[in-house]
Amino acid sequence: MELTTNKKGDFTIAEINGRIDTTNYNEFETQIMDVIEKGEKNIILNCEGLNYISSSGLRVFLITQKKLMGLKGKLHLCNMQPAIKEIFDMSGFSSIFKIFNTEEEALE
């Protein structure tokens, strides 16, 4: 799993590459929390390169969402692969997160 960030307007775009499972969700959690601690309140998680997510990974998404809501910030997800989208749908997470098809849509 790799996380690369760059700033675009009000948003920090974080691109996830690889898989998030029980072996590395901690890593993902630390990295995304680092971004928030630097003062970023509006984050777009670009999931184009995410090819697997376990329930542990979903939990980190939830924690991030809760944290940003507490800071009155925003978490947008975009560019999900169909398999990932299916997991979000099945688990009901699609209704918790704001999910966009493209990064441009997520930026608006």
């Binding site: 749908d89 009901g92 699609s94 209704s95």
Partner: peptide
């Protein structure tokens, strides 16, 4: 069929 309900323990 898939429902939109979220896992329990969250909200």
């Amino acid at each position: 069929e898939i429902t939109q309900d979220i896992p329990i323990g969250l909200f």
